[in-house]
Amino acid sequence: MRFALNEVDAIAKKATRGAGYSWGMAEEAGKAVRWLCANGVDGSRALLSVLTVADNSSPAQMAPTGVVGDWRSEGGVMCPLMAGATFSDFAGVGYADEVCILNVVSPVVLLPFVAMAARQLGQVLTVQWAGVLATTDGHVVSLDRAENSDCWTVAKSVTIRVGGQIGQKMPKHTRAEPKDADWKTLSRFAHRTYAPASSESRIKGAGAGLSDND
């Protein structure tokens, strides 16, 4: 099914919250998935890979422990939302010319954050992992993938460096077309943020008061 980008943003935000992330990170996830879909990447699939791992671990275990040297997480697997947000946060503060992030699940999710950093810096940034090379100035992105390369599972190491040449730009999209099964699974994560119905809540929660049929 085809979805509006706002719908994708909304479901990604709720699903990320449902998987145990903070609201601020959930907002990042919404915008990140929207960006991926707008650039023709299956953002729903990408996020789902992250949330599935996080659900069996915890976001805190999957966050970078620091920004000196190679970036690692406490639990071993790195969350691209946490690493991406950190990368963007530190863009203006400064880090080494080349950052290496270890064991990143669904590394394609880093791209929207790298794009945010590129916009802040006014520079082109290049992201590389096994068989994949992505370059962005923050506005457009090129994504070169070797056959059988993988964007969703764990990449042993991802490097991000200043500079690079933007190749063939990804065409912009105004709709997202997630797989039905992925959308359903995201919806199940999102559903965790909804309170179960109760008769008291039904009567009082939205207002009761005077008649709504006169």
Binding site: Y21, W23, G24, A85
Partner: peptide, 18 residues
């Protein structure tokens, strides 16, 4: 200290920083 460092330790305050 830049808030980038604070957020690395306190992702729960991210929406408030924004």
């Amino acid at each position: 200290k830049p808030i980038a460092e604070f957020l690395l330790r306190h992702p729960e305050h991210r929406h408030t920083m924004r």
